[in-house]
Design a protein around this nucleic acid. Structure first.
Length: 161
DNA sequence: GCCAACGTTGGC
DNA sequence: GCCAACGTTGGC
């Protein structure tokens, strides 16, 4: 009853675009979470994410979807640069540098874990209420409560690379 | 590649 | 401001 509603974040990435290994190869093992073009997900980044919040790094739209890494929010929100890049698929002509529409935060990957598949996740009773498990869920960023995180902990098996 | 679900768009 | 059409997401 005491757990925080926005304790942690589940952040989806398509591994063909940015995989957990890609991020581990980046400077500071950190990536700007570019390309979010959904207002609800944007508002989470803009209003609710804080530096240091735990992150579940999730691979989606792939053969083996699931949680593959643990990280943390590593910056305040700032304008997503891809919205201004005319050749980017994320270009938004309705946005402007003066009044940016889309923001991102930096995400740092701390370590990889043995993949927790969607199926595994559904079998953890305390995780039943997780937004990512809800039917028709399409949000790329969803909050994870403190209770859900605690329930997940015993299932997180750190990999050593 | 299918298709259910849901967000966005735009005509009225 | 309604709502049908359309586009996108993402597991399967």
């Amino acid at each position: 009853m005491s757990g925080k509603e926005f304790y942690a974040w589940l952040m989806k990435s398509e591994p063909s675009e940015v995989s957990v290994d890609d991020v581990l190869g980046m400077p500071e093992q950190t990536v700007g979470w570019f390309g979010v073009r959904n207002y609800q997900a944007r508002n989470f980044m803009r209003d609710k994410c804080s530096t240091g919040d735990p992150v579940l790094f999730y691979h989606s739209s792939c053969k083996e979807p699931g949680i593959v890494g643990i990280g943390q929010i590593a910056s305040d929100p700032y304008p997503d640069p891809t919205q201004f890049e005319i050749n980017s698929v994320y270009f938004d002509p309705r946005s402007s540098e003066v009044k940016p529409r889309w923001v991102q935060v930096d995400v740092k990957v701390l370590y990889k874990v043995e993949r927790i598949s969607l199926q595994d996740l559904r079998e953890i009773p305390e995780c039943e209420g997780m937004q990512v498990l809800k039917k028709g869920n399409r949000l790329s960023i969803t909050p994870v409560t403190e209770e859900q995180w605690d329930a997940l902990k015993p299932h997180l098996h750190r990999l050593t690379d």
